[in-house]
Amino acid sequence: MIWKIGFTALNFLILLFLVFPLLILIIVSFTNANFLTFPPEGFSLKWYIQMFEDSSFMEAFKFSAILATISTTISVIIGVPASQVIARKNFIGKNIVMNLISSPLLLPQIFLGVSLLQFFYYFTNTPANIWSLIISHVVLTLPYIIRTCTSTFVGFDQSIEEAAEDLGANKIKVFFLVILPIIKTGIIAGALFAFAISWINVEVTIFLSSPDQMALPVKMFNYVQYTIDPIIAAVSAITIYIAFALIVIIDHLAGIENIASE
């Protein structure tokens, strides 16, 4: 009994350890003081207001959102058909293709950043632009999309599809009217996860960021190297709210436990 209570208490502490930094950031973001302390002094929303008035942070928010949306969309468009084939067909070189797709997950991300920078440098003297970033983030997100979508397709009953075809639907109709409604939630959950991967990435993005177009995490990273003030705590807190919103949506769609055990 004592063991059991002790073990439960220990794990409460570990869970606390996992939320603590995020909670601290949310708490200090409401400080009224002009510097960061814990516990914070007073309560105000002034750092949030300042953040919304700071155009450089707003630009970074916008830039990151655009980057993550475009690259996730591209990954979904090219990844979903590929997942369907991988989940259902046997073809020559299937193993090689699967290894090729999963290897970015194993490779150090900073390595990916270094290699993409050098690659783009071969074609242009200014590799830091939105196009190279979009391509890099497709490489980053595509493996996640394919992994989640493949498992969705594996659990899919193909006889429904055959039935639709027997009733005279063509391939395109079958995809949009039969397959898509069934795999939709799987794709959306995977896409949200991929969006998050792109949205929080620094290790690859930092190599391809120019000073005038900076993704939010890179902007924050550069900012905290020189200044630590409550405005950055407010920015951090906003990203934490967004993270929780994404998780709640994914949990609602696919069940957080399914995502966790994949």
């Binding site: 603590f20 930094p21 995020l22 601290i24 950031l25 998050a196 949205w199 929080i200 990435n201 620094v202 939010l216 995490p217 924050m220 990273f221 905290v224 950055i232 705590a233 951090s236 990203t239 934490i240 967004i242 993270a243 929780f244 994404l246 998780i247």
Partner: peptide, 10 residues
């Protein structure tokens, strides 16, 4: 779902 920047900053 939050960047390493935010978590390290915490």
């Amino acid at each position: 779902f939050t960047s390493a920047v935010v978590r390290s900053f915490g």
